[in-house]
Design a protein around this nucleic acid. Sequence first.
DNA 1: GTCTATAAATCGATAGAC
DNA 2: GTCTATCGATTTATAGAC
Lengths: 203, 203
Amino acid sequence: MGRITRKESHAQTRERLVETAHRLFLRDGYNATSLDKVAAEAGFSKGAVYSNFATKHELGLAVLDVLHLERAMSLASAVVGAETAEDRIDAFEKWADENIGDVGWTALEVEFATSNRHVAGINQALAGRRRELTAAIADLIEQQAADLDLTLPLPADDAAVQLLALGIGLGVQRAFDPELPVTSLVDLLRSFLERAQPTTRSD
Amino acid sequence: MGRITRKESHAQTRERLVETAHRLFLRDGYNATSLDKVAAEAGFSKGAVYSNFATKHELGLAVLDVLHLERAMSLASAVVGAETAEDRIDAFEKWADENIGDVGWTALEVEFATSNRHVAGINQALAGRRRELTAAIADLIEQQAADLDLTLPLPADDAAVQLLALGIGLGVQRAFDPELPVTSLVDLLRSFLERAQPTTRSD
DNA sequence: GTCTATAAATCGATAGAC
DNA sequence: GTCTATCGATTTATAGAC
């Protein structure tokens, strides 16, 4: 029972490969990182990679899932603990300043998406992840609006699309021009709040 | 005098190579298109390519310049001829609907930028083009605002950054999920107008 | 200035040993 | 399940003929 089964060992190798690919893809890019480098850096050989992933694209998608989870957790933890709307915006500004462009995950996601946009099957996988991400952001927005008793000037879904697209656009441009500030992301959020109406509640 | 000089012939082949690369890059992507294909499709051999461009990146940058020029001209021609603010927004909506994502030049630009974000020298070239593009959009915004006697709720530079980043973000996502609408681009523009103040002029 | 031929290197993926 | 060895295909870039 206490011993490490074959399945557990397999899962450990897989996790370690994903971690290494995650680091190398962020550092050097997806196209510039070969599976040989990933395997060697993780302490395995290329055969171990193909034992866990059918193609390089599969490994790439697994890394994207990790990135999405990281983002969702860091954003959620950044917003909690703030009371007023201004405090939440400040928290969001701090998160955006530390996360958009600097780390480079936006560039990685976009490099993967655009480089493989004509590869069969990849489109659907990316489209599904995009919708999940947009829905999660919309949920967060609705939750925040309800918490602050505010009625937003536009549907939460539309607000989520705008915020995500603006974040992607900024992250992409900051990947090669870090001087571009991320303040416009906060400006957009603030414009939502300025045009929001207070909600009258029955309780 | 009337004959074709060597310099003119050289310029012709260069132009033809850029045109072909422009088409193939848009169709198949930058990384997936080899210089061999470009040369063959243009009716030349690979030697002609390297006689006109030192590296593949140089050809890529030349194509980006064509894309930028196309965008600027099509957007400018779409906005002229409209009188009221609403007409201009309608014209912009029509332009955005036809240009963002469908053609795929956003995906191409972003693929090139992210794939070569760690290549020495490319960053500066891309950063320069980004600033030129942002400045051109800001000029267009200022011109439109002055024409309509409006004072925008934010500096034209900031508005340009927001519009460009939102357009990039939408174009990237539409490259693999065409169901995503581009209406948020018009929504953002409309929100600028709604918060704009009429300008009192002295003449 | 363009073409042909080839160099030189890399990478994704596979086959068989262990 | 992982490793070693290798295939096969492709690529950028170069060298020399014309």
